[in-house]
């Protein structure tokens, strides 16, 4: 069973994290204090850690720095009330793998954590991604289905690569925007939708089944047709 360590001093937020992740089938251990959290994280193996940026005892940045220096590479999702972009940069530079600002939608938190868990397991060396008959050549940047292929525009390629690397995984619009375009603000909902719509049409033109599915009220997921 996948085990998660949640280091979070705000009880309400912690309860939310625990209940959301438990409902995703994870085993969650909650620690409210920075020092205690660090001890737990170094003494036991977890698959991922959610880490509050501001904690009593030792703060989140220090914890993640210590973990990385101690060669512990458990994926860390940093959660913080500090929204400034430079705070995000500091969090990621210290060794955090993703950064989520408070308040957050719990399914977004869970989705980000699952992406981190998957990234941990998948080897990054492949040159062709395959999902349900759809192939994406990372070298030629071509999408193939059956016998036909299509050249993708740079954005379309990045988008499809992100979806395929996280196939089966719920991806929110924010996560897609951040990963594909590399910006961290709210671009308005339908921009990402429009890009996905265009990619969908391009894939369908290849004769592929509708692999990209809309998850109502949450985002998208690419999965092989059942």
């Amino acid at each position: 069973m996948t085990s998660i360590l949640a280091i979070e001093d705000d009880e309400a937020t912690a309860r939310e994290i625990v209940s959301e992740l438990t409902s995703h089938g994870f085993h969650v251990e909650w620690v409210a204090d920075g020092r205690e959290g660090l001890i737990r994280a170094t003494s036991k193996r977890f698959d991922a850690i959610t880490l509050d940026r501001m904690l009593p005892g030792i703060d989140g940045l220090t914890i993640v720095t210590i973990l990385r220096n101690a060669n512990i590479h458990t994926p860390v999702l940093m959660i913080s009330a500090l929204t400034q972009v430079d705070e995000r940069v500091r969090g990621l530079r210290a060794g955090g793998d993703d950064y989520l600002t408070k308040p957050f939608a719990s399914e977004e938190m869970a989705a980000r954590l699952e992406v981190l868990l998957r990234r941990q397991g998948a080897p990054a060396r492949e040159t062709i991604l395959r999902v349900g008959g759809l192939e994406l050549d990372l070298v030629t940047r071509e999408a193939r289905f059956g016998g036909s292929d299509a050249r993708l525009l740079p954005t379309e390629f990045k988008l499809l690569e992100f979806l395929m690397r996280n196939a089966g995984q719920l991806l929110t619009r924010t996560m897609i925007f951040e990963s594909v375009w590399g910006y961290y603000f709210d671009p308005g909902t339908n921009l990402v939708d429009v890009h996905l719509g265009r990619l969908r049409r391009k894939l369908e033109a290849l004769g592929a089944p509708p692999l990209i599915q809309t998850v109502r009220g949450a985002g998208y997921t690419l999965r092989a047709a059942a």
């Binding site: 309400a12 939310e16 959301e20 408070k102 308040p103 957050f104 939608a105 719990s106 399914e107 109502r216 009220g217 949450a218």
Partner: peptide, 19 residues
């Protein structure tokens, strides 16, 4: 804005789960 976002997020989570 910040204080209202927390309960709104909870409300949204509820609605989302119901959905």
């Amino acid at each position: 804005a910040h204080d209202l976002r927390t309960p709104l997020n909870r409300l949204r989570a509820l609605l989302y789960r119901m959905r």
